[in-house]
Simulated assay, not measured.
Amino acid sequence: MDIADRAVDRTAWETAQAEHLTAEKAHTRAGDALAAARRRLPVTRVGPVRLVGATGEVPLVDLLEGRRQLVTYSFMWHHGRPHHGQCEGCTFSMSQVSEATQAYLAERDVAFAVLSEGTWAELAAYRDFMGWTMPWYSVEHALDEPAVAGGGQLRSFVRDGEDVYLAFETVARGTEPFDMANLLLDRTLLGRQEEWEDSPAGWPQTPAGGWWRRDGRPVAQWLRTDEPVAHATACH
């Protein structure tokens, strides 16, 4: 890879950028159209379900904290594993949900919460270790309700009185709205540097998500500790 071979003068650079902007704008408008269609999807009522949070057992409607809507993320959980053995992908995503993000969602009457199939004791310990502030809830005893079970899902709910309806659900790359780092990397010359990307020959590329874990820990955990990891455990 020789960056110098791609160099042009400022005028040629501006011309190429302007031509590319047409495609960027089309992509934005296509996203707007998808969002408009999403707002017209049907909803389905979620039956009675109780989750466990910091105050004990609560009904699903309490997760909305009196707000009209709720966005959740289902954190994949490995029962009994130490902190460094928990999901690097989910840690990658949730580490990018800031207090400001939650505050701005609240301004639009939207609550945010993390759901997980782990026990409340394990979830609370992990959240505290990571220094996160968002509400977490265990769905350990609600696994028969598909609207809250599972791992890796982004879901949105809407409330009508005391009834809660599931409005939208997505997985895999559909959860990328959480991943600001990826979206910023997409704007760089080298991109995410992952094997699936269509990049020029010679660009650095590694397995997808492989860089979310370093020296045995999800990368964000190194902001919380410098304790070495004797046996690395990846999320599978």
Rank of each mutant, 00 (worst) to 15 (best):
131 G>T: 06
138 S>G: 14
142 A>I: 00
186 D>C: 09
178 F>L: 05
207 P>Y: 01
202 G>L: 09
170 T>Y: 02
130 M>E: 00
167 A>K: 14
163 D>N: 10
213 R>D: 08
141 H>C: 02
151 G>P: 06
152 G>I: 00
163 D>R: 00
127 R>Q: 15
175 T>E: 12
211 W>N: 01
132 W>D: 10
148 V>G: 00
154 L>W: 08
188 T>S: 13
213 R>C: 07
185 L>T: 05
224 R>V: 14
220 A>D: 05
186 D>E: 10
162 E>D: 04
145 E>I: 08
211 W>D: 12
137 Y>H: 07
151 G>M: 03
224 R>E: 06
140 E>G: 14
221 Q>A: 07
185 L>G: 02
128 D>W: 11
128 D>V: 10
153 Q>T: 09
202 G>C: 08
207 P>S: 15
190 L>H: 09
130 M>Y: 03
190 L>C: 05
154 L>D: 06
169 E>S: 05
188 T>Q: 12
185 L>M: 11
206 T>H: 06
218 P>L: 14
196 W>P: 10
157 F>W: 14
128 D>G: 13
194 E>Y: 06
155 R>I: 00
202 G>V: 06
176 E>W: 11
143 L>V: 06
215 D>V: 07
154 L>R: 05
135 P>Q: 06
203 W>H: 14
160 D>S: 09
188 T>G: 06
156 S>F: 12
162 E>P: 09
133 T>C: 08
139 V>Q: 13
189 L>E: 08
199 S>Y: 02
126 Y>S: 09
210 G>L: 13
158 V>P: 02
197 E>W: 13
178 F>N: 03
208 A>M: 10
145 E>F: 14
145 E>A: 06
193 Q>P: 08
147 A>L: 09
135 P>T: 04
135 P>W: 12
193 Q>A: 10
180 M>T: 02
